[in-house]
């Protein structure tokens, strides 16, 4: 169970972490500045196991991986959005930050409410109402990367050509 931090549409990577804080590759230091300007209380109030719920096009803008790294290092368990920007989507899968796509959830939860997520089943339960929402599935080859905990972990034990078996 975790608390929802709710964001609107088109949250960009400058909002997730402004360019001027990308002066380190240390995940903890990046997490300190996560949503630093648009939601200054975020890094102080977020707890391990919390969730981000957002509208369309989450993570648009720059290709900086500092953005999903900052979110992951904040302790966020999963980002659940109506849709993701393309580069951010790849980055999350590559670094092993769980993402889920759901059109429905956004209008069913408020900021600060509790949800329970089952990543394997792809389900999200809203504790207040008991309603369960199912997220959109991933193609098989992406599941391979997710199951390995990210592409780097995948490559530790596999050849990249093995991804093709899932294509």
């Amino acid at each position: 169970m975790g608390k929802v931090f709710r964001f609107s549409d088109d949250v960009n990577t400058d909002e997730i972490i402004p360019g001027r804080y990308n002066v380190t590759t240390d995940p903890k230091a990046l997490a300190e500045h996560c949503f630093f300007e648009v939601r200054p209380d975020f890094s102080k109030t977020v707890k391990g196991g919390d969730f981000i719920v957002a509208g369309e096009n989450f993570g648009c803008g720059s290709s900086r991986e500092h953005a999903p790294i900052a979110i992951k290092a904040s302790g966020i368990k999963a980002v659940i959005a109506k849709s993701f920007a393309r580069i951010f989507y790849r980055n999350c899968i590559n670094i092993g930050l769980p993402i889920m796509i759901s059109d429905e959830l956004y209008d069913l939860v408020k900021d600060g409410e509790d949800i329970e997520v089952n990543l394997k089943e792809g389900t999200i339960k809203i504790l207040k109402t008991g309603k369960v929402v199912k997220s959109k599935g991933f193609p098989d080859f992406i599941l391979k990367i997710i199951d390995a905990g990210g592409i780097v972990n995948f490559l530790k034990n596999h050849d990249i050509g093995e991804l093709e078996d899932g294509i």
């Binding site: 290709s63 991986e65 580069i87 790849r90 980055n91 592409i151 490559l155 990249i160």
Partner: peptide, 10 residues
């Protein structure tokens, strides 16, 4: 096309 650093590493 733009990608993140891990994709560059791949």
């Amino acid at each position: 096309t733009g990608v993140g650093s891990t994709d560059i590493g791949v």
